[in-house]
């Protein structure tokens, strides 16, 4: 299978995927450090989930619509969302698309078909179903991807979305990135049944993939993506990708996480994927090193450059609530920042 990938001209795609993994890890580490230095308010690390996301997104096209969740920065980078969009959101500065209104990690890039991330988990899943309905009704190309963590599988929104997508046979990929923990709760205390097996109860195919291996995820998800693209209906993919750090910069994982995947260890998806690609002859160790070095330099300079952008102006507090501000909002703006 791996040889086939190389033969079928997937080599470029593999290199790009690996490049995005490295870029995402570099950015993740940079943000985590900056948060400790007090330069960034908050972050939900994405390390450990790069291979799962990019293994899937290598099958996606630009017309596909993604309802990502708050750890999907790697997939966004891979799908071509500029680093600037992400860093500006992390800083919440005046160049941020959402005008600094959301906590860091709640990324958005409508122009790249990445929708907006809410904090209440799984609440985007029913939206993905509606968007898929619209796609089919309007005869638009493209499928819809809705990603979420293992904790989301307990929510009513997950149930509603899975059921509705199946009832209407809609082109949705439900993509569960199971990192083993919902903040502190292990998956086995979240649900009695493996998440991918829930697909059957709703009437759709479900699979489990090794989300720590980009190549494995890519190969195993191909058929599922084709199934959805051909109009046969929704699928559920569970990718196992153990957490490498805290839930967010606000918690202490040592209280609940003993078996942490260490960066650079042989369980790190970056190392696993790199080894696979070297074995397959897609890249060499030298190329991998070069990619890491380039990413480091690129991210460092971008991060420092964008830090200089000022915060959003006070007026933005009152914008975008409605198409036109109501008299109430106008009045409150006047009280708080003075009349224009």
């Amino acid at each position: 299978m791996s040889e086939e990938i190389v033969e079928h001209g997937d080599k470029e795609r593999m290199i790009r995927g690996f490049g995005a993994m490295v870029l995402a890890r570099t950015l993740n580490n940079k943000i985590m450090t900056a948060q400790r230095q007090g330069r960034v308010g908050f972050f939900t690390p994405t390390s450990g989930q790069e291979a799962a996301q990019i293994g899937l997104s290598m099958h996606l096209r630009k017309e596909d619509i993604i309802y990502q969740y708050y750890r999907d920065m790697p997939m966004m980078l891979h799908m071509g969302v500029p680093v600037d969009i992400i860093i500006n959101q992390i800083y919440g500065n005046s160049m941020d698309i959402a005008k600094g209104r959301q906590m860091p990690s709640h990324l958005l890039a409508r122009d790249y078909n990445f929708m907006s991330v809410p904090s209440p988990v799984a609440t985007n899943l029913p939206l993905a179903v509606g968007t898929a309905y619209a796609n089919r009704y309007l005869k638009k190309d493209g499928i819809v991807v809705a990603s979420f963590g293992d904790g989301s599988s307990s929510t009513p929104d997950f149930h509603a979305a899975m059921n509705l997508a199946a009832v209407y046979n809609l082109p949705v990929i439900f993509f569960c990135e199971n990192n083993g923990l919902a903040i502190s709760l292990p998956t086995e205390k979240q649900t009695k049944v493996e998440i991918w097996k829930k697909a059957e109860a709703y009437g759709m195919p479900g699979i489990l993939v090794n989300g720590s291996d980009m190549v494995d995820t890519y190969e195993k998800t191909r058929e599922m993506v084709e199934y959805v693209r051909s109009g046969k209906g929704p699928v559920l993919i569970e990718a196992r990708c153990p957490r490498m750090g805290p839930h967010s910069t606000s918690d202490d994982p040592t209280k609940y996480l003993t078996d942490i995947v260490k960066e650079g260890s042989d369980r790190d998806p970056l190392i696993i994927s790199q080894k696979r690609l070297v074995e397959m002859g897609v890249i060499t160790e030298q190329i991998a090193s070069k990619i890491r070095e380039d990413s480091q330099n690129f991210i460092t300079s971008k991060f420092d450059e964008l830090e200089k952008i000022p915060p959003p102006s006070p007026e933005t507090l009152f914008e975008d609530v409605y198409e036109e501000p109501t008299w109430i909002i106008d009045e409150e703006r006047g009280e708080i920042i003075g009349r224009n």
Partner: peptide
């Protein structure tokens, strides 16, 4: 039936779907 949809019994699904539809060109 495509334009007047009898839905399952799930209010959050009805509203959530409608939001997703409106974000993608429909007027639900």
């Amino acid at each position: 039936e495509d334009r007047v949809i009898d839905t399952p019994l799930v209010e959050l699904g009805i509203v959530g779907m409608a939001i997703g539809m409106s974000m993608n060109g429909l007027k639900p």
